[in-house]
Amino acid sequence: MSSVVGMYITQGIHGLVYGMLLFLVSSGLTLIFGMMGILNLAHASFFMLAAYFCYAVLQVTGSFWTALIIAPVFAAFFGVLAERFLLRKVHASGHIAELLLTLGMSLVILEAVKVFWGTESLIITVPESLTGLVNLGLDINYPIYRLFIIVIACVTLIFMALILFKTRLGKIVRASVTNPQMVSALGINTPVVFMLVFGIGTWLAGIAGVCAAPLLTVFPGMADQMGMDCFVVVVTGGLGSLLGAFIAALGIGELNAFGVQFVPRLVPVITFGFMVIVLAIKPTGFFGEREA
C-alpha cells in the first residue's frame, strides 16, 4: 500500500521538478511576448545554450556553483545581443518577419552548438554536496538534486516577483504587458526596456538550462522537447500571462510524470491535442487577454 502511495508521491515530485523548470523557461517567453509581441521561437535555444555554457565553465573552473551563476548570464548576454542587433532591426517589418528571424536564430544556435561541442551527449555530474538521496518519510528516498532544482526555481521566482512588483522596471513591464501603447506614451525609453526584458527572459531560460543539464545531459536536441512543451505552456496559459504559464507549466509537468507511468504513448498527443483545442476555442489561452 505505502509503496504505491510512495510511487505516486515520487512521480508527483518528479512532475513538480519538470514543471518548475518548464515555468522558468516559459515565464521568460511569456514576458517577452507580453512586452514585445514577439513569439520567440529561439527561446528554448537559449536554454540549451546555457547548458553548454555550464559545461564549458565546469571544464575551466570545475565548480558547478560558478557555472550556475555565470552560464545564465552568458546566455542572457547573447539574448541581449540578439535583441539589440537582430530583432530590433526587423521590428518595423512586422510580426511575420520577427517570427522568421527567431526561427533563423534557433537554427543558427543549434548548428553553432554542434560546431563548438559536437553532437555527442555531454555528461555533467551533480556537485558532490547535492548527490545522494534524502528520506522524505513513507520510505521515499528522493534525489537531493531534484529538490535543489525546486529550491532554485522558487528563489528565482521570488527574485522575479520582487523585480516585477517592487521596482520601476517591473512596473513598466507590467503596465506594458497589459497596455503596450501606454509605455511609449509615457515617454519611457522602450528600446532599453525591451532589451532588458529580453535579457531577463533569456536569463531565466539560462538558469533552467543549467539546472537541467545534470538531469538531461547536454546534447543538441535538448531544446526540442523543452521548446515544444514551453510553447504549449505559453499558449494554453495565455500569451503574456505569468499566472497562466505557472498553472499550465505545473499541469504539463505532472501530465508528463504520471502520463509516462500510465499512458506513455499518449502524453504528447494529449499535450498537443489540448493546445489545439484551447487555441480553437479560446485563442487567448486560459488567462491571456491579448490575442496573438
Binding site: 513569439l39 510553447f231 489545439v276
Partner: peptide, 19 residues
C-alpha cells in the same frame, strides 16, 4: 486567425500530427 496566431496554430496542428 492571422499573423502570429495563424503561425502558432499551424505549428500546433503540425506537431499534433507528428506526435
Amino acid at each position: 486567425v492571422t499573423g502570429t496566431a495563424f503561425a502558432m496554430l499551424t505549428l500546433a496542428f503540425g506537431q499534433l500530427l507528428y506526435v
